[in-house]
Design a protein around this nucleic acid. Structure first.
Length: 921
RNA sequence: GCCCGGGUGGUGGAACUGGUAGACACGCAGGACUUAAAAUCCUGUGACCCUAAACGGUCGUACGGGUUCGAUUCCCGUCUCGGGCACCA
């Protein structure tokens, strides 16, 4: 009769204790050093959590618990990103208010999270859809509206300061991030109507309303920002997206492009995420060049990264949407230009992307004049030039750019070589090596020099000059949806005004349906009385990323009613020390959150610029789908290894009916009515299923619910197993096969202390090798936590417990630090002892001075050994082990002996069976 | 096309700054306990050769080269998988 490891009882008991004692509440005021561990908060979907979701939460929880034990005041909160599309679409279908659906889903999530024993401080929970929360989201929007970006001071400033500058000197000498097309002086400014002034100011505000090309998704009935569109389809739902011109709210994130780029250097994020952000920001240095147009007032401005090739320009291409197209087109070309522009406009984003090789274009009849030679250059339009980047116009140098080259060859335009020794008979030479030819004052210069010289000359002549450009676009901020934060704007005589702080939040109105109105207005237009002081309110809501752009601040002071968070709380908690989440947010959430933080920092509202000091991306857990094979003729189910004898098709089967490829036939028959009387062809009396790794999803029947795993093995087993599965940052398939190994280990631990009915610990002094084994473990786990390499930690635990005798494990002296290290995974395995010691005390600190963790493991002497002046052995030689393994290892290292020549090996030092040092004459 | 990151037993995966490759776990095989099963415990387990067995040997970290006394690790080239960007001038 063995007592079994009663994980359900243990876990239930400790969950209750933690809740009652508020064990994991972060201290409001503390002299302890702080540590802020944050998980990306989830969107509470109706499907609940599957076994892949908690992977990151488990890892961050290990760090949180470890840091707490090391004497830090740890902030480890959780909340919900609760505005979003699925709840709204459910509302459209059922008429149920999204708030109700959301609340229900959150409850389900909470139940699942609680079972897993996370050490979250739930008193700080946030929900982005809570008016008490989105009041501040709206407030931050109004701040953006009230500020502009000074490119000289590299800082956001109030609109009032801008108005003053306009009133005293117009806008000519104002250095600002803006899209204002007109120049005016002080007098003109003062003579403008209020309406005109408001229009101008909108071009400077960091939150602005403008007529822009947007990504329109007809199926969702809303616009989307660039990061919400993947390959011409909406990221959520996968609906086609088209480009169209629309009046929309945008945020001027481009003003912060350089700072967002520079800020990356100080962040401890993975290279791939940093690289993705750099890519997205897309900085490129070059020159702007203004071409005069023959017989016209207008000038065409282009951007180029290769001003050195300016004498190779043989034509100019404008984007079909370019605003000068209509004014520059000559009468003879009008017809064909009009039809080409119409053609270009009809092309969907998708078509343009898939047919990038297709060369189209049209001559508009105008000629530009070369800024240096005065030569006439034909002006074309072509869809390969994008309206949204740079000035929407390029100077085409076929010899130096493949796209220009293809265009030139297609329309039989000249190719002018500008580099010595480069062959441009079949393709462009894009290399930057060589010297310039056919280039007047640039002749003979190397590319680097020529770029510099051309830039200088352009500046001198007033025809352009060096310029830095970013690929990043401003972020479209309005969504034509119901379930989001209302944009706190009202219109007075058509002038947009923001609602003052004291009147926020602007709460979501009740509507009769969650669909757009029949005349295409957003759902909020259905609200009966949606006005502010009698003025009409903005009908769009904010995008999903609004609420998540500042939630990490809210956790610091979640109940503050007057500000997002108090200055004191932010001064104490500072940046997030560890941020855990998926890499899919690389160019969305992670960029927007950085942008908002930089902005709030400019206003003095946040004491730091970068919100997330260290970022770790956990991998995805995929599903392992199971299949049964149905014989097409007999409808019998054929076991996997026999299918070659039959003509079968594969059918997804619920993975919960399968254990180690073995189908539970009885459960399978009950699974669906159609299989009630199914017949099987078995191998050795068993039905073996096939398997395949796929995304975890309901339709593939491969979803594993953590609740089921916990019911069967306990939360500790689930947590430890998820960590054991492989490196945290890698994607890997969920596979229940190995879980018994981890479960067995925990069972074994439990049994070490529970002999029958009694609980056993001894106070004997531990032996030296027991301590050594233990300290090896402590060192390993500490290093692993630094590296987020939890899978090897689990192995280390298993080894340690195997190395220790049963008695040794039960010695108190050994147990304490072991428990501390074990605590991240299974703090309650040895519950009585744990209870006795008190889980709130910092045992790791108490334990380490006494045992001196480093003492046995690394109080070694280091011998740097240099052989032949080249190869260097850096050796750690434990004083206590110097003589071990001398004889047998000399033979094993014959290569080394050969190398040493006539030198005589005096000793070979072996540590854990490995040659670490050679002592020779 | 460009930029990151990977390819190690039947499987998931270990291996510190170049120093016994395959830790740990799963699976599999054999054994113990049991009327039996489950649970638990023990032993073996990269491939191949030699052997009655042991000892021993050869080959092995995607592929081909290189540096080194010594390479999973460093360098060059190729193949391949995953991720990001993509007519960005």
């Amino acid at each position: 009769m063995h007592a079994e490891y009663p994980f359900a009882l243990i876990e239930e008991k400790w969950r209750r204790k933690w809740a009652e004692n508020r064990t994991f509440a972060a201290l409001e005021k503390s002299s302890l050093p702080k540590f802020y561990v944050l998980d990306m908060f989830p969107y509470p979907s109706g499907a609940g959590l599957h076994v892949g979701h908690p992977l990151g939460y488990i890892a961050s929880d290990i760090v949180a618990r470890y840091k707490r034990n090391c004497g830090f005041n740890v902030l480890h909160p959780m909340g919900y990103d609760s505005f979003g599309l699925p709840a709204e679409q459910y509302a459209i279908q059922t008429g149920q208010h999204p708030a109700i659906t959301t609340a229900r889903n959150i409850e389900r999530y909470r139940g699942q999270l609680d079972k897993m024993g996370f050490s979250f401080d739930w008193s700080r929970e946030v929900r982005t859809s809570d008016p008490a929360y989105y009041k501040h989201t709206q407030y931050i929007f109004t701040l953006l509206f009230h500020h502009w970006y000074d490119t000289e001071l590299q800082k956001a400033r109030t609109i009032d300061s801008l108005v003053e500058m306009f009133a005293s000197g117009g806008n000519e000498n104002v250095h600002a991030a803006h899209h204002c097309k007109v120049l005016f002086d002080a007098a003109t400014w003062k003579n403008m109507s209020e309406h005109e002034q408001a229009e101008i100011l909108l071009c400077y505000r960091l939150a602005y309303l403008s007529d822009t090309m947007v990504n329109w998704c007809p199926a969702l009935g809303t616009v989307l920002s660039n990061d919400e569109v993947k390959d011409g389809f909406s990221e959520r739902g996968g609906h086609p997206v088209t480009r169209m011109r629309m009046k929309q709210w945008s945020l001027r994130i481009t003003a912060y492009a350089q700072r967002l780029l520079d800020g990356l250097d100080e962040l401890r994020w993975s290279d791939s995420i940093k690289e993705a952000q750099r890519n997205w920001l897309g900085r490129s240095t070059g020159c702007s060049v203004r071409f005069k147009v023959k017989g016209k007032e207008e000038e065409i401005e282009v951007f180029t990264t290769r001003p050195d090739t300016i004498f190779g320009v043989s034509f100019i291409v404008l984007a079909p949407e370019h605003e000068l197209v209509s004014t520059l087109t000559t009468d003879e070309c009008k017809e064909q230009v009009a039809s080409y522009v119409a053609y270009a406009a009809s092309r969907s984003e998708r078509e343009r992307q898939t047919e990038v090789k297709k060369i189209t274009g049209c001559f508009i009849g105008a000629y530009a004049l070369h800024p240096f030679s005065g030569k006439e250059i034909p002006v074309w339009i072509g869809e390969y030039v994008l309206a949204g980047y740079g000035t929407g116009a390029v100077m085409a140098v076929p010899a130096g750019d493949q796209r220009d080259y293809d265009f030139a060859r297609h329309f039989q335009l000249p190719v002018i070589p500008v580099m010595a020794n480069s062959d441009v008979s079949t393709m462009a030479d894009e290399s930057k090596e060589g010297t310039m030819i056919n280039s007047d004052f640039l002749d003979g210069l190397r590319v680097e020099e020529a770029i510099h010289a051309a830039g200088e000359r352009l500046s001198l002549s007033g025809a352009g000059g060096p310029l830095v450009l970013f690929r990043l676009r401003d972020a479209i901020f309005g969504r034509q949806r119901y379930w989001g934060e209302p944009i706190p704007v009202y219109y007075r005589d058509g002038i947009p005004m923001v609602i003052p702080k004291e009147d926020l939040p602007l709460t979501l109105p009740e509507v009769d349906a969650y669909l757009p109105t029949p005349d295409g207005e957003p759902p909020l237009a259905r609200a009966k009385e949606f006005t502010y002081k009698g003025y009409p309110l903005e009908k769009s809501t904010m995008p999903g990323w609004a609420g998540s752009s500042w939630y990490f601040l809210r956790y610091m002071d979640p109940h503050n009613t007057s500000a997002p968070a108090s200055q004191e709380s932010m001064a104490y908690w500072q940046q997030v020390d560890l941020y855990m989440g998926g890499s899919e947010h690389a160019t969305g959430h992670l960029l927007y959150a950085r942008f908002w933080t930089h902005f709030l920092h400019d206003l003095g509202q946040v004491p730091f610029k970068e919100p997330f000091k260290k970022l770790v991306n956990q991998g995805m857990i995929q599903g392992t789908s199971a299949f049964v094979y149905v014989d097409k003729k007999s409808r019998k189910l054929i076991s996997k290894n026999l299918v070659s004898n039959y003509d079968t098709y594969a059918l997804h089967v619920d993975v919960n009916l399968v254990d180690n490829h073995l189908l539970d036939i009885e459960k399978f028959k009950q699974w669906r009515e159609e299989f009630k009387d199914a017949e099987f062809v078995l191998e050795e009396g068993k039905y073996i299923c096939g398997s395949e790794v796929e995304k975890m999803s309901k339709s593939k029947w491969n979803v594993v619910n953590p609740d089921d795993v916990i019911a069967r093995y306990g939360a500790d087993t689930l947590r430890m197993y998820e960590m054991f599965l492989g490196p945290l940052e890698l994607s890997k398939p969920w596979n229940t096969n190995g879980i018994t190994g981890v479960h067995g280990f925990l069972k074994k631990c439990w049994k070490l202390f529970h002999q029958g009915e009694s609980f056993a610990v001894t106070d004997e002094e531990p032996k030296e090798e027991e301590l050594r084994s233990l300290h090896k473990l402590i060192k390993k786990v500490r290093e692993d936590i630094d590296k987020f390499s939890f899978n090897t930690s689990v192995s280390a635990f298993m080894i340690c417990v195997n190395e220790l005798s049963e008695l040794a494990c039960r010695k108190r002296g050994i147990l304490e630090p072991l428990l501390v290290c074990l605590s991240p995974f299974a703090p309650h395995v040895c519950e009585e002892l744990w209870e006795k010691l008190g889980h709130k005390t910092s045992i790791i600190q108490a334990a380490f001075p006494e045992f001196n963790a480093e003492y046995l493991v690394s109080s070694n002497i280091e011998y740097p050994v240099s052989l032949n002046g080249k190869t260097r052995f850096k050796i750690t030689l434990p004083a206590s082990m110097d003589a071990s393994g001398v004889e047998q290892e000399v033979r094993a290292s014959t290569d080394l002996q050969k190398y040493l020549g006539d030198k005589i090996i005096k000793k070979v030092i072996v540590v854990s069976g490995r040659i670490v040092n050679v002592v020779h004459t």
